[in-house]
Design a protein around this nucleic acid. Structure first.
Lengths: 213, 213
DNA sequence: GTCTATAACTCGATAGAC
DNA sequence: GTCTATCGAGTTATAGAC
């Protein structure tokens, strides 16, 4: 209920739940999913290791709450990037790949968290709705950019597009040889260009044979 | 030294080291890197949890030995796929994406293991050589398929190509919504086609302006 | 609603018997 | 070269005081 930015009561927070999600996101950005633990999040928030269990029944619920924030921001970033890219459907979709790669490289979490096994349970309804929003943002852009009239063709492009964007992010994250040390923002342009090439190639293949060249 | 298939001495193996690597690969295929542990590998091989430490100084060394096998097979599979694809440089490179995606989807390990932090140490020289073989296989195919005359252009295509292939595999592995339940071999064709589209788009962009259309 | 304390477990790694 | 036994650390999660 306290909407003031500064908590009123010393070290205890007015909204520990939100604080835990915030710290959880930062921990994920530093250590990834495998380095995530309830105890570490609690320590970051300067509370005991038992405190989180008053707000989340188990580890998975805290992780799902973090994932819900991630997927929402991801959808927002992609929508913003598409809008900033102008009117060309190819450019609009390509820009989402750049935004996705950058965000995932920054936060170290992407789809592997959104679709982790066990996250489809009904108790994670917020996450489910966030995932839906994610695809609702992406699907119209894919359909507009696809060179195929058939829905299946658009789905193939969606899959390829997401795979490419996620691949760019994970290759960077995992500290591989060639890309080691690159900053997340330096991933935007290459991922966008690769997506542009992918979309262009797909359109070319599905283009009507007598299309103007 | 015993080259007979059936071990001579009851439950104890003639070559526990090889057995541990074998079981390690199977564990990785089932549980991924995060589910990998020395204790589990030992249990799978029906030896005590201390036994592996007679053959590997630590967990990372066992993991690196598994990674070495993975990267070698990966290079072989990609080379085979390229050869089976014929003479067209685009088709040859595209085929490697299909082979990569399928193999990683089957074994649940790819570059995230090959380039994991700490694996560049001199003690993992076998792995380092395997990684080199991996890129030695891929690089000529990329150069041949690239539409760019400059080396930097080929490197960009290499990065995009690997990202796409790895993305396809990881999206499947992580049990995401749309692709859940698909079999690894059903990943070959879509990944190959996506790579073909990516390469085609890249060539189109780098094609000399007065190129014949 | 947060604390201390702890149970029950898995992990990596080592010591010493055989 | 494999065993049993164990240490110390880290984890999820719960019980009960305040």
């Amino acid at each position: 209920m306290s909407d003031s930015t500064t908590a009123r009561r010393g070290y205890h927070h007015g909204d520990l739940r939100a604080r835990l999600v915030h710290e959880g996101l930062e921990l994920l950005a530093e250590a990834g999913v495998s380095g995530f633990s309830v105890a570490k999040v609690a320590a970051r928030a300067h509370v005991s290791s038992a405190a989180p269990y008053r707000h989340f029944p188990d580890r998975e619920s805290l992780l799902a709450a973090c994932a819900t924030v991630v997927v929402g921001r991801l959808a927002d970033r992609m929508a913003e990037a598409a809008d900033a890219a102008g009117d060309d459907p190819v450019e609009r979709l390509a820009a989402t790949a750049g935004a996705y790669a950058r965000y995932v490289a920054e936060g170290r979490v992407g789809m592997e968290l959104l679709f982790a096994p066990g996250f489809h349970e009904p108790r994670f309804r917020d996450l489910h709705e966030g995932t839906r929003k994610f695809f609702d943002t992406l699907l119209p852009l894919v359909v507009a950019a696809s060179g195929s009239d058939e829905f299946a063709g658009a789905m193939d492009l969606l899959e390829a597009h997401v795979s490419l964007a996620h691949g760019y992010a994970t290759v960077l994250i995992q500290g591989s040889y060639p890309t080691a040390g690159r900053r997340p923002e330096d991933l935007t342009a290459p991922a966008t260009e690769a997506a542009r090439n992918l979309i262009t190639g797909e359109r070319l293949r599905h283009a009507a044979p007598p299309a103007a060249l």
